[in-house]
Design a protein around this nucleic acid. Structure first.
Lengths: 338, 338
DNA sequence: CTGTTAGCGCCTTCAC
DNA sequence: GTGAAGGCGCTAACAG
């Protein structure tokens, strides 16, 4: 049985100061700004901290200093593996600077996004990192008014709320389309998640192909292997002679691969497959998956850098950063690939 | 160029109260405890909130009320996909109750764990959810003293810091060992991550087999497809006639499957493979992966429930919850499986 | 149902 | 280098 514990009256800085025989404020400075305190005093305070088991209360500190040392990270869902490297790197980079990450999940829903952002703002974060652009106009205004540094990521915009680090999904789609053209595939299909960015990539893909009649299987985001299998099944229903599939994620591509294998289709000989995201598994599968590489960790660490800079009152000269992308050709589209 | 924005002097509850023509505390109650305020007043306050664009400051509220409405979630690394469903469910369940999650990453390191826990405590979270048991003894003591509700998960212990929700890794290993015995495999191997819980499962596996000479490939956590491939290569070096492999995760099992395929070994005819965790992809691959199912989302939602209960001053009657596990037989070990 | 009073624990501002 | 006030924005506790 586990009961609410009796309050050990919590140790405050006041107690530490008393034990150390200095004033409250001196104790405070010894801990957070040691440069202006004598070494002897610092030692005394440190001892008192040990003796009392003092742990600072960042809520109180944040209230006065207006720096909560928290950064909000907003993702569609934590399980969208696409964003994990970004969030992981962001979390690590910020932790190294004494900042923690609060996570919010929008479920790809603009209304939830707005609600989540409001809750986040009420925690006074020193920065907000979004995966994707802010959808709701109301939320944009609120964010601007709040004065909190905001980094939108995994996309690009001429007019970000504040800063943006990403790449053009239209161009990604275009690059894949160009690759399809260069390979001369005619009977092609698209397997895509229903989220906005995946749809943008599809748009770029179609524009480059110069076609609008391409068989498409749209599956609900987030994607999964099972959905990838289903998508290929749908595409083959629409176009039995399918030569190549463009997928909105490596996970979907994996599912397409499995479904192809289950139907006795050889990849790439009978069916070529392209993914997106350069997930770890894609490089090591047989066949390895041709994909579009995006620097997820780079986005996370750069976002941390920009936020930290702004927290220190610095001006960010390049608030719009295009990290680009890179098509990686592997065996799922070419028997000759590395 | 993005510069630190000019401070729009932030709107406080004081401003709202003035606009609404009520006292500060009435405004406060209208928002956070509407039951005790007249409907007319509530309406006035709501209007004033709209008009001013007020967003509450939870730091200040938390300071006074001693409820930060934050819960810390500590994981080895965000990218360990094993824990994602737990963290995702936890986050959603808590968000529904007005709580946010702060994440900390330990990198499977006891020292970092201690540091992370200290930082977390200093944020006054209303609860702490650990994946795994708390390693450091110092951290345990601090946690107990802090009085914060703590849920350790994904493991079991007679003497948790506070509460624990999970299952026995020894028993999981034992169950897999029993399955191996029942199938009569003699030339077996273990592919395992280097983390503590994976090692416990291996121990249980060996104990049930009654052997200590089983070829083992230990790969650094967190696991990946590439590491799974490497592990099988190592095992085949040690035991060319390998009949079956016990893997510490479905990801490793996937890698083993790929490596087997690359070497022309048929699964399960030439080599049987068992994973752990029941990842989404395992059920849908060809062959599907025999695995041990653990209720990750259940752990997350139950953890949220217990913490919320304790936040409301309730007593948790069952602070030690064994959620058990279930071996799921699929095609990677049996051509007859579903 | 509403208001007054008194802080929460710490840090900024100013003196010494 | 140190200290004494004052207040960050909000909410318990008690009055009316």
């Amino acid at each position: 049985m586990s009961t609410p514990s009796p309050h050990h009256k919590p140790v405050t800085l006041h107690d530490v100061a008393k034990v150390a025989g200095v004033s409250l404020i001196t104790a405070s400075r010894a801990l957070s700004n040691p440069g202006v305190v004598s070494d002897k005093t610092i030692a005394k305070v440190r001892e008192a901290v040990e003796a009392t088991g003092y742990i600072p209360n960042l809520l109180a500190g944040g209230l006065k200093s207006k720096r909560s040392r928290m950064v909000a990270a907003i993702v569609p869902a934590l399980s969208v593996s696409q964003f994990l490297p970004t969030v992981q790197t962001l979390t690590s980079a910020l932790a190294a600077g004494g900042y923690q990450v609060i996570v919010g999940q929008t479920n790809y829903d603009a209304e939830r996004e707005e609600a989540v952002l409001n809750t986040m703002i009420s925690r006074q974060p020193d920065g907000i990192v979004m995966t994707g652009l802010v959808q709701s106009q109301k939320a944009r205004e609120r964010l601007v008014r709040s004065g909190i540094p905001v980094v939108e990521t995994w996309d690009l915009s001429d007019r970000p709320v504040d800063m943006v680090i990403g790449f053009s999904h239209l161009k990604v789609g275009g690059a894949v389309g160009g690759y399809f053209l260069s390979r001369g595939w005619k009977k092609v299909g698209v397997a895509t998640g229903s989220d906005h960015r995946a749809m943008l990539r599809r748009e770029g893909f179609l524009a480059t192909l110069g076609r609008s009649d391409v068989p498409t299987a749209v599956v609900p985001a987030p994607s999964s292997l099972a959905l990838g299998r289903r998508a290929l099944a749908e595409l083959l229903d629409q176009e039995p002679g399918l030569e190549a599939v463009c997928c909105s994620s490596d996970t979907l591509a994996h599912g397409v691969l499995v479904e192809a294998q289950a139907r006795g289709l050889r990849v790439p000989e009978d069916l070529a497959v392209v993914g997106f995201g350069n997930a770890e598994f894609g490089a090591h599968m047989v066949p390895s998956i041709t994909t579009v590489h995006v620097d997820g960790p780079g986005i996370g660490s750069l976002a941390a850098q920009l936020i930290l800079a702004r927290c220190n009152g610095e001006t960010v000269e390049q608030p719009i950063v295009d990290l680009g992308f890179r098509l990686i050709e592997r065996r799922s589209t070419s028997v000759d690939a590395a």
